[in-house]
């Protein structure tokens, strides 16, 4: 396990709280390693996950041992923006904005009277 942790981009932040790891180490994109992952035939030879018998399931860490620059699930650069996806995203954004606007009217009313004078 240690061997795999030492290769990840999160390796320097292993002691940081989990919530901060993405923020701390998200900026470096290593192009060589990405290319190596996608095109090297040797990548299939190395085992990337430890044998599943002793793998701890209930941990605060990621489930599978993270391999360096493993492609992560929403493959946004590979996908053409679709109308449905754009509608869905903007639908959520506008929904959140509308909710915030609706809830802040009574809140602003309440607190403006309390803090006004």
């Amino acid at each position: 396990m240690e061997k795999y942790y030492s290769k990840t981009k999160f390796a320097p932040f292993r002691d940081a709280p989990f919530a901060l790891r993405g923020a701390l180490g998200s900026s470096n994109t290593n192009l060589e390693q990405t290319r190596g992952y996608t095109s090297s035939p040797l990548g299939a030879l190395r085992p990337k996950v430890p044998p599943s018998g002793r793998r701890p399931l209930h941990t605060s860490g990621p489930l599978s041992a993270p391999v360096a620059n493993r492609p992560l699930s929403p493959h946004l650069p590979l996908k053409k923006p679709q109308l449905s996806a754009t509608f869905s995203i903007s639908h959520r954004i506008f929904g959140v904005a509308l909710g915030v606007a609706i809830i802040s009217v009574p809140l602003a009313t309440k607190f403006s009277i309390m803090f006004g004078v």
């Binding site: 989990f18 919530a19 901060l20 809140l107 309390m114």
Partner: peptide, 23 residues
Amino acid sequence: SKAPHGVLLATGFGAITGAVLGA
């Protein structure tokens, strides 16, 4: 939480909720 922005949002929401409850 595993998301920093979630921590931020939760803190803000907790502040609003606590203020309403305190009022």
